[in-house]
């Protein structure tokens, strides 16, 4: 607890001060790290808290991104109205998948496959939605990089940094609070043993569905950020299976089901990936794929030696150190 609080306080201060200390490159790495922390937190609600494995979360990123970006490109309406639309679209999609999966008792790995199937289906669908650019992509008008236009989310890296920083802090606080609610307890009970949870009165179907819907809606906000930060959307990239996988690495490696795990994981992984690329580039070798290989090896090592994840392992070490 004390370790968590100290860690949280330090991260918060460092996070607020970062734009003054960091170079533009470091800031861009931080933005990506925080984005993965954010979507990792959103995924963690569904899998870490409620125990429902989704390997298709890129679908909610994509739906959110396309909803908000489409609204902006075609009507000029900014992300403040685009975000609610994105959430609604993703929540409906999540509710549909969850309803079908849970109603037809698709469990465990089969449920994960169902989420992949829907994500892939949606990817190909978007390839053919010509109104939204199809496979040719959807492009947002690139705004000025110097000024700050919060209404339309147009501006430079510092603005985007603070936006994703606030989003990440907010979702972390939300996770913390959720775990302490009735719903949070019921999710964890379902994750541990759904039948036993049902026997003590937890309405399993509805409670699981809530986890999927909340996770989907929050993930879609990550998609809105993605759209306005990168300004280009390709179904091939945003709905990719590899993105769905990359999104879940941070919470798994950091510690599934914990509040700070996804954050710690993302702050560990993204810079590590950058470092690897830099080292490999320094050696003069082509670097495509090397980051994922490192992540894969790391994932195996964590699953093998730190099954709870890095963050719980760290807190246990600190607790031990204090006792001695």
């Amino acid at each position: 607890m004390i370790a968590a609080r100290a860690m949280g306080g330090a991260l918060l201060l460092a996070g607020l001060a970062a734009p003054w200390l960091a170079s533009e490159y470091v800031l861009s790495v931080l933005i990506v790290s925080l984005w993965f922390a954010y979507v990792g937190q959103a995924w963690n609600i569904m899998m870490g808290f409620a125990g429902q494995l989704s390997l298709g979360h890129a679908m909610y990123v994509g739906l959110g991104a396309y909803a908000a970006a489409g609204l902006f490109v075609f009507t000029g309406i900014g992300p403040w109205l685009g975000a609610p639309l994105a959430v609604i679209v993703a929540v409906i999609a999540g509710a549909g998948i969850g309803w079908l999966g849970f109603r037809f008792q698709v469990k465990g790995v089969y449920f994960a496959l169902l989420t992949i199937a829907f994500a892939e289906f949606t990817r190909i669908l978007f390839d053919h939605i010509t109104v939204l650019g199809g496979s040719g992509g959807l492009f947002l008008p690139v705004g000025q990089r110097s000024g700050v236009d919060l209404i339309n989310l147009r501006g430079g890296p510092v603005m985007f940094y603070y936006v994703i920083f606030v989003m990440t802090v907010a979702i972390t606080a939300l996770s913390w609070a959720l775990l302490r609610t009735r719903l949070g307890y019921q999710w964890q009970a379902i994750r541990e043993d759904a039948e036993a949870a049902e026997a003590v009165g937890v309405p399993v179907f509805r409670t699981k569905l809530l986890a999927v819907m909340l996770s989907a809606g929050l993930t879609a906000l990550g998609g809105v950020f993605f759209a306005f930060y990168y300004n280009t959307l390709f179904p091939e990239q945003i709905f990719a299976k590899s993105r769905s996988i990359e999104m879940i690495l941070a919470p798994i490696i950091g510690g599934m089901g914990t509040v700070l795990g996804p954050l710690v994981g993302a702050l560990l992984l993204t810079p590590l990936g950058e470092l690897t690329m830099a080292v490999i580039a320094g050696l003069g070798v082509t670097n495509a794929g090397v980051r994922q290989v490192v992540f894969g090896v790391l994932l195996i090592l964590v699953l093998w030696f730190l099954p709870q994840g890095v963050w719980p392992w760290l807190t246990q070490r600190w607790a031990k150190g204090r006792r001695q």
Partner: peptide, 30 residues
């Protein structure tokens, strides 16, 4: 089952099924 629990029937399982990662207090709190 959850509706029957709400109606006022509690049950235990022959092979015990605690929520292993939760504390004893959290188990009972659920």
């Amino acid at each position: 089952p959850d509706q029957i629990a709400a109606a006022g029937i509690g049950r235990t399982f022959q092979i015990v099924r605690p929520f292993p990662e939760l504390t004893v207090r959290q188990n009972v709190t659920v």
